[in-house]
């Protein structure tokens, strides 16, 4: 586990070495990349504002408690924390929205809580399904998507369930 926390530094060290050997401008690449990160953060901000505002309202009005209590039997049956419900709804539709939802859960429950970890694994092992489908099919000029959407949604469902189960096994 200690080695895992060194992953970024290990990667950075070795790719710098590799870049030096190849004569690639490593510092320049890092700067370009960091600038892209800034754009990413800027693009994330609108989604964060709307989602945080909505979720905070939901909690303050007592509706979130009510919904959680209603959904609890179903979620408990599948072994998924009911707090991740909103995240799972948004995930296939919007990448920045889902990242904002996961960030909000981590702010509220802590990144190392079971909920925070489950949310992280869910985000890390899934994609923005409908965005991917629309980009690929519209680029290819194919209008009939056939079985692609149901199969992709099956994969998403399996991903969410296994993320919850694996997290509970490892960290509960």
């Amino acid at each position: 586990m200690a080695l895992l926390s060194l992953t970024p530094l290990l990667l950075l060290g070795f790719s710098c070495l590799y870049a030096l050997a190849l004569g690639v401008d490593a510092y320049g690449a890092l700067l370009t990349g960091a600038k892209k990160g800034l754009t990413l953060a800027l693009e994330l901000l609108p989604a964060l504002v709307i989602l945080f505002a909505a979720v905070w309202c939901l909690r303050a009005s007592g509706l979130s408690e009510l919904l959680c209590r209603l959904a609890e039997p179903l979620f408990r049956f599948f072994g998924v924390p009911e707090e991740t419900g909103l995240l799972m709804l948004i995930r296939p539709l919007s990448g920045s929205g889902a990242l904002a939802a996961a960030g909000e859960l981590m702010e509220t429950y802590g990144p190392d809580s079971l909920i925070g970890r489950t949310a992280s694994v869910m985000i890390g092992s899934s994609e923005t399904t409908f965005y991917v489908i629309s980009v690929y099919y519209s680029a290819a000029g194919v209008r009939r998507t056939g079985w692609a959407i149901p199969a992709a949604l099956c994969a998403d469902l399996a991903c969410f369930l296994s993320a919850a189960w694996i997290s509970r096994l490892l960290w509960a």
Binding site: G37, A41, V49
Partner: peptide, 24 residues
């Protein structure tokens, strides 16, 4: 939301920098 965005910007930039280096 704004405070959270500021908090994550640093590590997001660092990660993007690493991705760019990997790609290049």
């Amino acid at each position: 939301a704004l405070r959270f965005c500021l908090d994550i910007t640093g590590s997001l930039c660092l990660w993007s920098a690493l991705s760019e280096l990997l790609a290049q």
